[in-house]
Simulated assay, not measured.
Amino acid sequence: MTTTHAPAPPTATAPSRLRRVAALAGGELRLFLRNRTAVVNSGLLPLLLVAAVPALGIDGELPLGPRLLVAAVGVTLVFVTYYNLVITYVARREELVLQRMRTGELTGLEVLVGTAVPTLLVTLGQVALVAVGVVVLGEWSAPVEFLLPVIALLGGALLMTVLAAASTSFTRSAESAQVTTLPLVVVTSALSGLITPLSVFPEPVALAARLMPVTPVVELLQLGLAGVTWDGDRVDAAGAWAAAPLPLAVLAGWLLIGTVAATRGFRWAPRR
């Protein structure tokens, strides 16, 4: 007598996960495009801030082209990726959208990634647009080390995403995100070297600023695009890598902190 066993339930494959994430991202993108205020804020405001940063800053250590690109990445990561995602995650949570999506096939990670995709696409589009503008202005120059800016952009985008997810734990509503995001948006950005070079601060302040979450992204961009260290020294490709371990370690450390905080603190349902 032979016995038959019920087939094991199929496990989700990578293509099926990608299809689910893509479907969710497509829906989120349609919602985003219907919100004209969000489109204008995400599209126009960062470009204005990018144009203002080199004009208002006192950083003459970077040529105009790299300075614009550093500003583009820093501003869009903070004001588009982080800020918008905090509002989006909280709004979806308070509307019970996240809770409903988790009752289907989507995993928690797929929900978070799919919701973030439109914002990340806007971030990349903004940086690409500024890069095209730098070329048109004739200010483009070959990076000293191409890999460091790529690490800064991708690592910074991932960091802002996990920090946004972590920030929802103490953000009760989309409106209150204007307050809860201030420490990263204002304080850490101001001390990141994005507006004012760290070399103008007393050394203890500069060293403390280098441990903040936005600073390693700016440092890696400056090293890779122009070969300029945090204290204004100019280096070649080998020197850029020699100066990179600290910002790479700080970026990795914040990624770990943000991931742990998001995993433990993210709420899928509103607080009652």
Results as ranks from 00 to 15, higher is better:
2 T>N: 08
2 T>I: 11
4 T>G: 11
5 H>W: 07
6 A>G: 09
10 P>T: 14
13 T>Y: 00
17 R>G: 07
29 L>S: 15
30 R>D: 15
40 V>E: 09
42 S>Q: 12
42 S>I: 03
42 S>E: 03
44 L>Y: 11
46 P>W: 05
53 V>G: 11
53 V>W: 04
56 L>F: 14
56 L>C: 09
59 D>R: 14
59 D>P: 05
59 D>V: 10
63 P>L: 04
69 L>M: 13
70 V>Y: 02
73 V>Y: 07
75 V>M: 08
78 V>I: 13
78 V>T: 12
79 F>L: 11
83 Y>S: 02
87 I>D: 00
93 R>K: 10
99 Q>F: 05
112 L>N: 00
115 T>G: 13
117 V>R: 10
118 P>E: 09
121 L>V: 15
124 L>D: 02
126 Q>H: 10
136 V>D: 02
143 P>K: 04
146 F>G: 07
147 L>C: 00
148 L>E: 11
149 P>L: 04
149 P>I: 06
152 A>V: 03
161 T>H: 12
162 V>I: 09
163 L>E: 00
164 A>K: 05
167 S>P: 00
167 S>Y: 08
173 S>Q: 02
174 A>P: 01
174 A>H: 04
175 E>T: 12
182 L>Q: 15
183 P>I: 06
184 L>G: 00
189 S>E: 08
189 S>M: 10
190 A>S: 15
195 I>R: 06
195 I>W: 13
197 P>D: 11
209 A>D: 01
215 T>A: 13
218 V>R: 06
220 L>C: 07
221 L>V: 01
223 L>K: 01
225 L>D: 05
226 A>D: 14
232 G>P: 00
234 R>M: 05
236 D>V: 00
237 A>F: 04
240 A>S: 13
244 A>R: 04
246 L>E: 13
249 A>V: 14
250 V>L: 05
252 A>S: 14
253 G>F: 03
257 I>P: 00
262 A>N: 01
264 R>W: 13
265 G>S: 09
265 G>W: 10
267 R>E: 12
269 A>G: 01
